[in-house]
Computed example of a mutant assay.
Amino acid sequence: MTLSIIVLGLVTVQRLGELVLANHNTRQLMARGGVETGAGHYPIIVILHAAWLAGLWLLAWDRPTNLPLLTIFIALQLARVWVIATLGDRWTTRIITLPGADLVRRGPYRFVSHPNYLVVAAEIAVLPLTFGLVGFAVLFSILNAAVLWVRIRSEGRALVSASEDVLGTPMV
């Protein structure tokens, strides 16, 4: 078994595990009065990420692995875990807000508003580059940027709406 197959297998298992966790958290958030925003673009995100992973399996399963780039990808996985751990039961792959809930401002959120999206954007580029797939990395980075442009705007509106107090004034 090549290192590329091991890496792709681990990434696949990780992503599937994250989907299980995200679905669990989504159900819990909705039961607590959560509100979903941006459901219309969510299938596009799922298709994009599934195509990215499937494309990597198709193109990279037998390619040599650049170890310095793989090390960067592993560091990104640690950042991903930090984001998920920081959000705890509020982490999901959908935009679910709890009306009146405070914004998370600890962990990586002390430094940047959307750390998860930074990690994902870097992963989408770095993993294909790890296998020498420059064109693939560029293509999916562009597609991801387009989807994130829509998603971040939608999430920003949802967070402002969810944080409004009784008087309708955004809580900052």
Rank of each mutant, 00 (worst) to 15 (best):
Q77H: 08
Q77G: 15
Q77Y: 00
Q77P: 01
Q77T: 02
Q77K: 10
Q77M: 14
L78S: 06
L78I: 15
A79G: 12
A79R: 08
A79H: 05
A79T: 07
R80C: 00
V81L: 14
W82H: 13
W82N: 13
W82D: 11
V83N: 01
V83P: 02
V83D: 01
I84N: 00
A85H: 13
A85P: 02
A85E: 08
L87N: 05
L87A: 06
L87E: 13
G88W: 04
G88E: 04
D89A: 15
D89R: 15
R90A: 12
R90C: 08
R90N: 08
R90V: 05
W91I: 06
W91E: 02
W91H: 05
T92C: 15
T92D: 08
T93K: 06
T93S: 14
T93L: 10
T93E: 13
R94M: 06
R94I: 03
R94E: 10
R94Q: 15
I95N: 10
I95W: 10
I95H: 07
I95T: 12
I95C: 10
I96K: 10
I96L: 10
I96S: 05
I96Q: 07
T97K: 09
T97R: 14
L98F: 04
L98N: 04
L98C: 06
P99Q: 12
P99T: 11
G100P: 09
G100T: 09
A101C: 09
D102G: 10
D102L: 12
D102V: 07
L103A: 14
L103I: 11
L103Y: 07
V104F: 00
V104L: 01
R105T: 13
R106K: 11
G107C: 04
P108M: 05
P108C: 07
P108K: 00
Y109H: 07
Y109F: 15
Y109V: 01
Y109I: 01
Y109E: 00
R110P: 02
R110M: 03
F111K: 07
F111D: 08
F111I: 14
V112E: 02
V112C: 08
S113N: 10
S113W: 01
S113T: 09
S113P: 00
H114P: 01
H114K: 06
P115Q: 02
P115W: 02
P115N: 02
